[in-house]
Design a protein around this nucleic acid. Structure first.
Lengths: 129, 129
DNA sequence: TATGGGGCTTCCCGTGACAGGAAGGTCAAG
DNA sequence: CTTGACCTTCCTGTCACGGGAAGCCCCATA
């Protein structure tokens, strides 16, 4: 299977797949003409990584998860630990964004949004405190 | 005022201030020895940008906000529009993260997290659907 | 006066996870 | 045989800086 078909099935841009090969996430063999020849298991790995990425796992985590995925002697505790850590990051990010949203909402609500120059948003941003 | 003192007062790394000068956000004059000499208004601009960045505005938005900040004939509507757009991005990001969190929480909860290889997280990631 | 230790400067490379595009080889159809 | 779609590698750019090297500059102390 050529790269464009692999890309279609995995739901990834061909560019991304080449990048994943560069960093060693997949290692498809080559046809005599130099084209990448994706095997079913390469496609599985790509699909796996695509889904993990879409859940926000970093490439490093994807690599670790992929290793575990391909290791029949894995312990589910190792997988869970990676996911739990990622969940912690998500929660932290959510809290941060919620705080930003609150501050920004206050500023936006206080601003008349008309043709006059007076603007609580700018005042808030300029505040030294 | 030298860069380290400006950095201290603005709450920014000196590296970041040099970068902001590179991209034209601030233009402090130079002392005869080549050192940057930050004036009060340079410091105001730096503080302004630092706060805007901490609220998640992009550099481009900070530039626009700074222009408006320094323009006495501005309309607060222009400021509000930038902030409103940013708020929209934050809301989108919050929704996305909440969805990720839900999916990931389900997977993590379903995983025993023991020494056995059976793992719903990996199964979920491998799922074609 | 020498010297030592900061602080300042520019310049270049690296980050994460790719995207865009150039230059050129390959393949199947007409 | 040509055309056009596909494939390859390689280089550059993204965003907002951070790290570090090489080399001035300034001030205090011996």
């Amino acid at each position: 299977m050529n790269i464009s078909e692999a890309a279609r099935q995995a739901g990834l841009p061909a560019k991304t797949i080449r990048y994943y090969e560069d960093i060693g996430l997949v290692t498809p063999p080559r046809d005599p003409n130099g084209y990448r020849a994706f095997r079913p298991r390469d496609l599985h790995a790509l699909t796996f990584v695509a889904r993990a990425r879409s859940l926000g796992f970093t490439i490093g985590e994807c690599r670790a998860l992929l290793h575990l995925y391909q290791d029949p002697t894995r312990a589910s505790a190792d997988v869970k630990e990676i996911a739990r850590r990622h969940l912690g990051r998500i929660d932290a990010k959510l809290a941060e964004l919620a705080a930003l949203r609150a501050t920004l909402t206050d500023l936006v609500d206080a601003c008349a949004g008309d043709q006059r120059p007076d603007c609580p948003i700018l005042k808030g941003l300029a505040a030294t405190a």
